[in-house]
Simulated assay, not measured.
Amino acid sequence: MSTRILFVCLGNICRSPSAEAVTQAMAGKRGLLLELDSAGTGAWHSGEPPYGPMQKTARARGYDLSTLRARQVVSGDFSEFDLIVAMDADNLSNLQNMRPAGATARLALFTDFAPESGADHVPDPYYTRDFDGTLELIERCAAGLLDQL
Rank of each mutant, 00 (worst) to 15 (best):
His45Gly: 07
Thr41Asp: 10
Lys56Pro: 06
Pro17Asp: 05
Leu10Arg: 06
Asp37His: 05
Glu35Val: 10
Tyr127Ser: 05
His45Lys: 08
Met87Asp: 02
Cys141Pro: 09
Asn94Arg: 14
Thr67Gln: 08
Asp37Asn: 03
Tyr51Ala: 04
Gly47Val: 10
Asn97Gly: 07
Gln96Lys: 15
Leu92Met: 12
Arg71Lys: 11
Gly118Lys: 10
Leu83Tyr: 03
Asn12Asp: 00
Ser66Gln: 10
Met98Ser: 15
Leu83Thr: 04
Pro125Trp: 05
Thr111Ile: 04
Thr134Ile: 06
Tyr51Ser: 07
Phe110Ala: 06
Thr111Ala: 06
Glu48Ser: 11
Ser79Thr: 14
Asp90Gly: 15
Val8Ser: 00
Gly144Pro: 09
Gln55Arg: 13
Asn94Leu: 08
Ser117Cys: 12
Ala43Arg: 11
Ser75Glu: 05
Glu139Cys: 14
Gly62Leu: 09
Met87Phe: 03
Ser46Lys: 11
Arg59Met: 14
Gln24Arg: 13
Arg69His: 08
Ala58Asp: 01
Asp82Trp: 02
Leu32Trp: 01
Leu32Tyr: 13
Gln96Trp: 13
Ser38Tyr: 00
Glu80Ile: 09
Glu35Pro: 04
Gly133Met: 01
Glu116Ser: 14
Ala89Pro: 12
Tyr63Glu: 10
Asp132Asn: 12
Asp130Thr: 15
Cys14Lys: 06
Leu137Ser: 01
Lys29Pro: 04
Gln72Val: 01
Leu107Lys: 09
Val22Asp: 12
Trp44Ser: 11
Leu135Thr: 03
Gln24Val: 03
Gly102Lys: 08
Leu10Asn: 12
Ile138Val: 15
Leu68Cys: 05
Leu65Cys: 15
Gly42Thr: 08
Leu107Trp: 14
Arg59Ser: 10
His121Phe: 11
